[in-house]
Design a protein around this nucleic acid. Structure first.
Lengths: 149, 149
DNA sequence: TGCCGTGTGGGGAAAAGTGGGGAATCGGGG
DNA sequence: CCCCGATTCCCCACTTTTCCCCACACGGCA
């Protein structure tokens, strides 16, 4: 199981290539074979899954029933934005233009390690997101980390 | 097992030929030998199965009961529109006119990878379909992208 | 100070997407 | 039975995009 963490500032070159931080690459299990799946995430950021973690997501999608209209909609919605992507020899991912556009990314990105996935943000959007949270770190922690009774 | 994914915009030339995206072709198992089965799908799109995935579909409809009128109707509808199709040397499928007409396809198509099958849409019809759904990407993602507890 | 890992940029080769021409095949009509 | 048009299929050619490789700058570490 992956356990990505940390926060990294990186440049995006004019070919849409984003370097994965070395510390992140070291956490990818070797079975994933430098293959990642990039897709839309929550809050206008991109989710990047190493292949083995994506397989778990795909398993849950396969559990949906093809004869159920709502499930068909679910599957289409989730898979339509997903792209396979290989690391190049410099450890970079070439991100498709429509995904960059969705996340509002131009020249620079913020990369976050979030356990089983990696998130890619426009730094300004991330800052705005953080500033718009009604609660503070401490008050949220109180709710989230409360031991179940 | 196939696992198609992604969303691709392509042109249809005036001979009714549709190119399969390279990323899709790479996911076809070599046993399928460039042979695909095209048929009517749900929601006014076309389903395209590589041969090995089609075999599984055939297996499951063989299990249906010939004495059940609804089963007969379903099987006839599915099979009467199904055609074998070979990729040409440029990786394109030549789609019969009546299937194109059924799906309302003229000059351009949207191709979706949906796990074991590929879907072919008129882009405008797909957009209308998506806009008519009550659920959003985020509500759908909550169901599937949730980490296993 | 020299070496290695890391982040960044760019150029050239290869592949992918698109369009069209011409031979082979089929069916209908004379 | 033969001819002719229409359709299908196969191959070639062009343009754009993608991918792969090389090169360099910077910084830490021995």
């Amino acid at each position: 199981m992956s356990s990505f963490k940390g926060r990294y500032s990186y440049a995006v070159d004019n070919k849409g290539r984003v370097a994965l931080p070395a510390k992140v690459r070291k956490n990818v299990s070797p079975g994933s074979n430098d293959t990642f799946i990039i897709t839309r995430g929550y809050e206008q950021c991109l989710f990047v899954y190493p292949q083995d973690e994506w397989s778990k997501v795909e398993e849950s999608i396969r559990g949906l029933s093809p004869s159920n209209p709502q499930h068909r909609f679910f599957v289409r919605t989730l898979l339509q934005w997903a792209v396979d992507c290989q690391l190049d020899s410099q450890g970079r991912l070439s991100v498709p233009q429509d995904l960059l556009k969705f996340a509002g990314i131009e020249n620079e990105v913020l990369i976050l390690g979030v356990l089983e996935r990696i998130e890619v943000w426009n730094p300004k959007i991330y800052e705005a997101y953080m500033n718009n949270q009604p609660a503070t770190y401490e008050t949220v922690a109180e709710v989230v980390l409360k031991p179940t009774p």
